[in-house]
């Protein structure tokens, strides 16, 4: 019981730290691909932590758990791909 309570506390502090850290770095660093990759990875990690531990899906039925976790693999990947290939995306979406 106590361990579960403490793990939520640690997780909350970790999420706060990751948010503050990446925002500070992104605000002060030169915009570029590596920064996009860092931010996308942090989005994926934060999403997985919330899904598994706050939403408590790590022990839930597999279809729900997999779909929610997939969201935080797909969208961070799309963030990086959209940054890598903007011209191709523009070409594909021009009417």
């Amino acid at each position: 019981m106590k361990r579960l309570y403490q793990s939520l506390d640690v997780l909350w502090l970790l999420l706060m730290g990751m948010t503050l850290g990446t925002t500070a770095v992104a605000e002060n660093a030169h915009p570029g691909l590596w920064m996009t990759v860092v931010v996308a990875v942090v989005v994926g990690i934060k999403g997985r932590l919330v899904v598994d531990h706050f939403m408590e899906l790590r022990t839930a039925r597999a279809p729900i758990r997999h779909l929610m976790n997939a969201y935080f693999y797909v969208f961070p990947t799309l963030i990086v791909l959209a940054s890598l290939y903007p011209e191709r995306l523009k070409e594909w979406t021009t009417l």
Binding site: T23, A26, E27, V43, V50, F54, M55, M68
Partner: peptide
């Protein structure tokens, strides 16, 4: 209610860096 609320947080986890942080 709890899982719905977490979903709202999850959407913001993606939205914040997209709109405010990434250039």
């Amino acid at each position: 209610v709890a899982v719905y609320w977490h979903m709202i947080d999850l959407a913001w986890i993606v939205m914040f860096p997209l709109v405010y942080v990434l250039r």
